[in-house]
Amino acid sequence: MALSDVPIELVARCQRGDQKAFEELVARIGPELYAMIYAHVRDHDDADEILQECLIRLYKHLPSLRDVMKFSSWVSRMAVNQCHSQCLRRSRKAMESTDDQIEWAERDVMWQKPDMGNPRKELMRREVREEINQAIRELPPRQRSVVVLFEVEGRSIREIAEMLDCSVGAVKFNLHQARKKLKLALREYVRQRPSERPAAEAEAEAL
């Protein structure tokens, strides 16, 4: 279920404080929201934490959303801003001191098996993947957001500028910088054509 396909009535019910409706809403948008956050932060722990924060905010501030039609852009904007937020480190420290440990154990059981349906795409070797994720994590927050929004989510430069509240020029500049850094860091994976990427895929096949 895509963010934009959420029925307006459901959002309206959530706005009135209907808890059941909220649970239904989360069941619908949760996976996509999670994937979106993961694409930005490339870390399951961080994604989990940001998603929690996002949902709390969603529940708290949804009643103040005036135009229900803008729900999808409102949520994605909030998620991106949360990813972007510098407060992450601090809030994480605060959370570690609480019952986070127990949460882990419980949650690990809940993770599903990876989707085995499409091994070529899903099984990029773990190290290759980690290397790519590391390169993305090392980008400054703004560059990271821009490159993920443009390349992965396929948003237009104008849209990104509105979302991040900056100029089109700034988006272009950040995109260029991010590409430059990533190309340098991921040279060996970027150079081959997508169709003939022996290193990554041969290894993936072997796994």
Binding site: G30, P31, Y34, A35, Y38, A39, R42, H44, A47, D48, R107, M110, W111, Q112, P114, D115, K121, E122, M124, R129, I132, N133, I136, V147, V148, E151, V152, L182, L186, Y189, V190
Partner: peptide, 13 residues
């Protein structure tokens, strides 16, 4: 590369 690696390898239930 970015698109392929963006999908989480594990999906929460």
């Amino acid at each position: 590369v970015l698109c392929e690696s963006a999908k989480p390898e594990r999906v929460p239930s």
